[in-house]
């Protein structure tokens, strides 16, 4: 489960609108429950407490349908989070003019544990906000419960 405050949700939505028609991306930093959910060591209750927008390393037209985060940008955000006692709990990105459903490309490069939040943007306006998690066998994403609430 991922919990996000309405303020952070709205920030991600605004990033998605700002970067339209390109894809925005970034990291969700937060805290993790001490015990796994349902005994699965890859599933935890996560609370997003800070958003770290990251530059989409894709360029030009490619940015409209893909995103990538440079490892050094990831390391920088992770380090900033660690200084605050936070860890990377999820990734967000936008799908301009496309449903907020993970693509095969999202699946190919996904990792366990992380929440994958996707915002669809229709005509410059953020629309659906969904959240996903990789299945343990890497075969697919499945919806991960998402709650918008104050921490």
């Amino acid at each position: 489960m991922l919990a996000l405050s309405p303020v952070l949700r709205d920030f991600i939505r605004s990033e998605a609108e700002k970067d339209y028609p390109g894809e925005c991306c970034g990291l969700i930093l937060g805290t993790v429950s001490t015990t796994p959910e349902k005994g699965n060591p890859l599933r935890f209750a996560k609370t997003g407490l800070r958003i770290a927008p990251v530059r989409n390393a894709r360029v030009g037209e490619d940015k409209r349908r893909r995103f990538s985060i440079e490892p050094r940008d990831f390391m920088r955000a992770e380090k900033e989070g660690a200084a605050l006692g936070l860890e990377v709990v999820g990734i967000y990105h936008s799908h301009p003019d496309h449903p907020a459903i993970p693509s095969p490309r999202d699946l190919e490069r996904a990792l366990p544990f992380y929440s994958y939040a996707i915002v669809s943007v229709a005509g410059k306006k953020a629309a659906e906000f969904t959240n996903w998690i990789l299945m343990d066998d890497r075969s697919a994403f499945e919806p991960e419960p998402l709650e918008f609430k104050e921490p």
């Binding site: 894809e23 991306c25 990291l27 894709r58 349908r65 893909r66 995103f67 990538s68 985060i69 440079e70 490892p71 990831f74 390391m75 990734i91 990105h93 799908h95 301009p96 496309h98 449903p99 907020a100 459903i101 993970p102 693509s103 095969p104 490309r105 999202d106 699946l107 190919e108 490069r109 996904a110 990792l111 994958y116 659906e128 969904t130 959240n131 996903w132 075969s139 697919a140 994403f141 499945e142 919806p143 991960e144 419960p145 998402l146």
Partner: peptide
């Protein structure tokens, strides 16, 4: 260090994701 990447790509395939929440 994960190299996070993805995106809507060509917009034709949806993978095996099972639905929306």
């Amino acid at each position: 260090v994960p190299a996070i990447a993805g995106g809507r790509d060509d917009g034709l395939a949806r993978g095996r994701a099972g639905g929306r929440n």
